[in-house]
Design a protein around this nucleic acid. Structure first.
Length: 199
DNA sequence: CATAGGATCGCCT
DNA sequence: GGCGATCCTATGT
């Protein structure tokens, strides 16, 4: 039951961090409502050399600027005009590495999550897919730039952070493969930067 | 200023 | 498995 510290995100190893994030808890408090889930699937985006990354070639734009912040910062952007995709920036300031959270296993706040998706029953896609993760967690792209290493005070009504609650990901059960939806990245689309595990 | 396209999803067939 | 939704972002003139 401990907040994941800044140092976890500062390593120059976005692929390793992606793997290590499996089993960690993603927690949000939005308007005072707590929801959380265990991270089950991630993808690494390895900075300026990675053709699949928004920061490929050192591109700096209003949207991608937060990717250049220090590790432990949230990079959240709007995809296809509809979906907020949640990423965790890693490495030191000015090194735009990030990890996309692709799925979680919901743990706390089922009622609130269901309300957010306008459903009354949990379906097969619940928590599966980066757009769905943000939707049920109440994470909006306007929250990009948020410091994920800061757990909110009891009185705060907003916060997004990660905790290690002792759930271990068995290395032998981790499935590794190429990233989804990045065919435009040529050879880089084949890199084994996607990690998933069932909890 | 105009325009094409996207690290997706859910519904329809 | 095919497609429309939906709007911000990046890029070009």
């Amino acid at each position: 039951m401990s907040l994941i510290p800044r140092e976890f995100y500062l390593r120059d190893d976005v692929v390793g961090i992606s793997r290590d994030l499996l089993g960690k808890f993603l927690i949000s408090r939005i308007d005072g409502n707590i929801t959380s889930g265990i991270i089950c699937e991630t993808e690494a985006y390895a900075g300026v050399a990675d053709k699949a990354s928004h920061a490929y070639g050192g591109r700096r734009t209003a949207r991608t600027e937060v990717m250049y912040a220090q590790g432990g910062t949230a990079y959240i952007y709007l995809c296809y005009g509809i979906h907020s995709l949640f990423n965790i920036v890693t490495h030191q300031k000015d090194f735009p590495h990030a990890v996309l959270i692709r799925s979680i296993k919901p743990v706390e706040g089922f009622e609130i999550m269901l309300r957010r998706v306008g459903k009354t029953r949990i379906n097969q896609n619940f928590g599966i897919g980066p757009g769905n993760v943000s939707k049920i967690m109440g994470i909006h792209y306007h929250y990009t730039g948020h410091d994920l290493t800061k757990k909110p005070e009891r009185s705060d009504r907003f916060g997004i952070w990660l905790e290690d609650r002792g759930v271990m990901a068995d290395p032998k059960k981790i499935i590794t493969g190429p990233r989804i939806g990045v065919i435009y990245a040529g050879q880089d689309a084949l890199l084994p930067y996607r990690f998933q595990i069932a909890f």
